[in-house]
Design a binder for these strands. Structure first.
Lengths: 196, 196
DNA sequence: AGCTCATTTTAAACGGCGTATAATTAGAAG
DNA sequence: CTTCTAATTATACGCCGTTTAAAATGAGCT
């Protein structure tokens, strides 16, 4: 039995959170369970419930971190770009790259069905993380591509669609040799379209 | 106990398949379980395994039917279109429409993680159903939009991305008032881009 | 030191799951 | 009416999320 002096409350919460992240990263969302997380750190399953109302909240926290990681990658990609067109390409490539190099984390975002039964929507702190990513793209597009908010949404949807398609193994089967090329193709055409 | 003369083998298989479909449609993928399907028709859980190797195969069959339903909708949409541009719009709208009106079925396509552990890829019969849909779009695009295969893939990815975005409630939160408008926007811009 | 007491942690249980197996049952064939 | 094969089930195993009561802990106090 774990002694309560082994870890402070904060330490224990971090321990649970980190372990959940590791499990998702290494073996996918399905490999993360309340029992696995807690026994891996020498505690019993019930301990989770003093930090999270239920396992969905822990999953959401993991996904929230994924969104943060993505945001950071995109931000870094933008900061390196010299032109705004380069910035768009960089951000799109960074997104695709993250998805491909962190398949388990990325898939967890979309496999996860948040409280389907209770029907409640995602908490604000989570939605904010999503919005933040979108606004990054929106800002870049609007910088000088005469883009509007709708066009940013659509651009984002396309980038995301390619990312999904490139690694789904489901609706894919459209053998994507070089998804990077597809992405370039998409951006060239779409941006050309915006410029009339 | 169900008598073996109650249903022929074929009838029983159809019964299982139809019940699985109904459960997914009505309450989502998570609501479908081997026990629910079989007890709903007066059989015991084990019966499933004389028709499907495991529950994943049944899920895949349900998703396969969804792909067929989508294919039929798209085909019908195309057949009604007068011009090829109209056909593209029609097919895209039909896809979005199906996703929104059959959320549970549509989500099941993407929530489902086919045999993650065994690592095997999707069976050919399933991949064919996917390819068939893609080829529909490919054919329409190539009819006279100077499109090539890559552009069809990308167009498809964008349409799919918008569909996902419009109903995800996950990476969404980008409040999409009228996803139909977004879609139109996307098609206008992308097609304009193709035409140089 | 010992005692009190709120807090932390666990053990146990509930109902659910997918699935493998052995035992039963049904109905056809003889 | 018996025999034999195929269909069906009962049972069991090991998971799962979650709740609950009980136990263990360690801090504050005397």
């Amino acid at each position: 039995m774990a002694r309560r002096s082994d870890h402070s409350k904060e330490e224990l919460e971090k321990l649970i959170f980190d372990t959940a992240n590791k499990l998702v990263e290494q073996d996918g969302l399905d490999a993360m369970s309340a029992r696995k997380v807690t026994t891996a750190i020498g505690y019993s399953p019930g301990t989770i419930y003093s930090f999270y109302d239920n396992l969905d909240e822990l999953t959401l926290a993991v996904n929230g971190k994924t969104l943060d990681l993505i945001y950071n990658k995109l931000e870094k990609a933008i900061s390196k770009a010299k032109s705004s067109k380069q910035a768009i390409k960089a951000i799109a490539e960074a997104y695709l790259n993250y998805a491909q190099k962190n398949i388990n984390r990325f898939r967890a975002l979309y496999e996860f069905n948040y409280s389907q039964e209770s029907g409640q929507s995602l908490p604000n702190w989570y939605q904010d993380k999503v919005t933040r990513i979108f606004e990054l793209i929106d800002a870049v597009l609007n910088r000088n591509h005469c883009g509007n908010n709708e066009q940013a949404k659509v651009l984002w949807a396309g980038i995301h669609g390619i990312a999904i398609l490139s690694l789904s193994g489901k609706l894919d089967s459209v053998k994507v040799k070089s998804s990077k090329k597809l992405l370039e193709n998409y951006l060239d055409i779409y941006l050309r379209g915006i410029k009339k």
